[in-house]
Design a protein around this nucleic acid. Structure first.
Length: 189
DNA sequence: AGCACGATGCTCT
DNA sequence: GAGCATCGTGCTT
């Protein structure tokens, strides 16, 4: 039986949510078609103390959604051409989120393959491009099917099948934030 | 198989 | 005006 992850799922410590999102099913309704993938990689960004987090300098127009209640989509634009998808976590007012970095396609493979021109979906911008996720989805609820974007519970991944490592792309971020092992990946089989 | 680089434009200082 | 939670290509080993 299918269960859309609820707000209480997201209203927990971000590191826990990031781990538990591995194996979950990311679902997107695009042009009336259902596309989906199993989340295989995610990263945690936790509060204003975390100097790798967009909220490090406080609330701005860009990162405001990170401060909203858990279970919302934080979608932002970077590098002049890429969109990134995050799930907002913890309590309202505390800026934290999980970046969804990769998925294994399980529904709508033909459509996704066409959208990706045959290329893979392992990468945060590849994933949003594959699913047609952009600024129109910033701030929508991930707990409401009307938004056209949500996450369903999947097969839990055992701790021994999760690989942790430092987050990607934080080259200029000071330690310890640059190296904390807040990237989570499902072991490849 | 790995690395360097250019693309490209929004956000905040 | 600088800096980016990246990607794809092309060139080197």
């Amino acid at each position: 039986m299918v269960k859309i992850l609820s707000q209480t799922f997201y209203a927990r410590p971000t590191l826990i949510v990031a781990r538990e999102l591995l194996g979950a099913r990311l679902v997107r309704i695009l042009d009336g078609m259902r596309l989906a993938g199993i989340i295989t990689e995610a990263e945690a960004y936790v509060g204003e103390e975390d100097l790798g987090c967009h909220a490090k300098s406080g609330k701005t127009k860009r990162n405001a959604v990170m401060y909203s209640s858990p279970g919302h989509a934080y979608v932002y634009f970077t590098y002049g051409m890429h969109w990134m998808l995050n799930a907002v976590t913890e309590r309202e007012g505390f800026p934290a989120a999980v970046l969804i970095r990769a998925m294994e396609v399980v529904e709508g493979a033909d459509i996704i393959s066409a959208r990706r021109q045959g290329r893979d979906t392992t990468g945060p911008a590849k994933l949003t491009q594959a699913l047609g996720i952009d600024s129109a989805l910033n701030g929508v609820s991930l707990c409401d099917p009307d938004s056209g974007l949500w996450i369903e519970a999947g097969t839990p991944v055992a701790g021994s099948d999760i690989i942790t490592s430092p987050r990607v792309g934080l080259d200029t971020v000071p330690e310890p934030w640059k190296s904390v092992p807040w990237r989570f990946q499902m072991r490849r089989r």
